[in-house]
Design a protein around this nucleic acid. Structure first.
Lengths: 248, 248
DNA sequence: TAGATTGTTAATCGATTAACAATC
DNA sequence: TAGATTGTTAATCGATTAACAATC
């Protein structure tokens, strides 16, 4: 039953929490790890994340924030709290369909376990790829056949299916994942997937990313083309606020 | 000089335009291509994109919309208009740094040219990779050495740099791209990049995507776990409105 | 003509920001 | 104590939606 009731965190905040978390981790491992990185101010975190400091504080307040006035937030504790809020406690299994370059790149992504995800399988229907090893040592995994999908998905409600195949077979793959009970899909294929209402999909499309990036640069960034001249000092610092997207 | 003045399109709309465009293309090539796919209603486009129909109309109105009341929008013409609005007229060069699986996957992405991008180079600093071929036939490309970056970036102001390397070297790579004059970066490495204010960055992080997806599923999607029972009919249709993100 | 669907207005809603009192 | 920085309130801003007259 829904204990979800006590979760008033707005969507836009959730998306930013993940960004803050990443910034915190970057700070925690920073070159100056011995120095004062035990604590961070909303101002600094905002700078690193490309948002307004007031918004950082507002967002963190949703976490029942543990900052100290006049001091800041404890980096490690904050990271832990954010990780918990993002549901990292609550592990998920991940299956990747498609063992091409993209599938392998995703499978090779190191941070799975640390971020609360377990990669349980990489699948393909190409006989030349099935049986092939991915990664090595501890992380070694053998590519399975898509037909074995139902057997490999042990807890469908807690499994995320990653669609890492070309456009053509993408819908078919999605249907098979859904057929196996998977209800959350991350789609890297450049087509819109049609899914039932009880399935959550998130789409990542290279072209969309590039287009949005190019557009934003036009809109805000460049302005006039002579601005190459006002960059010298800026280039020196290289630690400025970054352009951030509308959200997410 | 800024001819950008005549561009009142809100950020949130831009992000959705790219999604609409993809949906339109999916429709245009759909199984029923012979049938009535010459025209599409805001209602249908909204359904495919997971947004409200009123919002689709609002968004399209920014394009000086060419729909016909009582009929709908012409699919092909609309797609063309949207492509133009997204700046596809205005070509961009793309350089990918990192010739690992991710870099190769991105390089292999078919839609570059069609979407207004030209892949000019894939670079790496690993001697074992430099000189290697990527893709074949027409699209064949040889991996260059990162040291040649300045020579390969011919029009920095119109070039997008894609960071497809591991976390460790990511900042260094970003610095080199910026040093070569590139002002727009798409970052796939799992660290926050520090860049000067005149550089636009867009970050794509697998962990962030997974986290946001999992959170959304918890928040909206599932609810109670018995809902496995109310899915049979839904599964049949498989053509429903999808969960969409806060934006972008 | 009757039905459908656009384009736009006005109302609602939510998200962002500035400002400041509380307090470490 | 004086300075810094949080947590929160209230004001602003922008984005979403419903509704409907215009019209194909």
């Amino acid at each position: 039953m829904g204990d979800q009731t006590l979760r008033p965190i707005p969507d836009a905040t959730v998306a930013r929490l993940a960004v803050y978390l990443r910034a915190l981790r970057t700070v925690a491992e920073g070159p100056d790890d011995a120095t004062g990185t035990a604590t961070i101010s909303s101002e600094r975190l905002a700078e690193l994340s490309g948002v307004n400091a007031a918004m950082v504080r507002k967002d963190l307040s949703h976490l029942g924030s543990h900052g100290k006035k006049g001091v800041g937030y404890p980096v490690d504790a904050l990271a832990a709290t954010m990780a918990r809020a993002l549901g990292i406690t609550d592990h998920r299994d991940v299956v990747i369909v498609g063992a091409g370059h993209l599938g392998r790149a995703l499978a090779g992504y190191g941070g799975f376990l640390a971020r609360g995800f377990t990669l349980v399988a990489v699948l393909d229907d190409d006989p030349a790829k099935v049986g092939t090893a991915i990664g090595d040592g501890d992380r070694r995994l053998v590519v399975s056949h898509v037909d074995d999908l139902p057997d490999l998905v042990v807890d469908p409600g807690r499994t995320i299916g990653v669609v890492a195949v070309p456009a053509r077979p993408a819908q078919l793959v999605a249907d098979r994942l859904i057929g196996a009970g998977v209800r959350a899909l991350l789609n890297f294929a450049p087509v819109s997937l049609a899914v039932p209402a009880n399935v959550t999909v998130r789409e990542v499309d290279l072209a969309v990313e590039l287009q949005v990036l190019a557009f934003h640069q036009d809109a805000h960034g460049v302005g006039d083309l002579m601005s190459e001249d006002d960059s010298p000092s800026a280039l020196g610092t290289a630690e400025d606020a970054r352009e951030r997207m509308a959200s997410t």
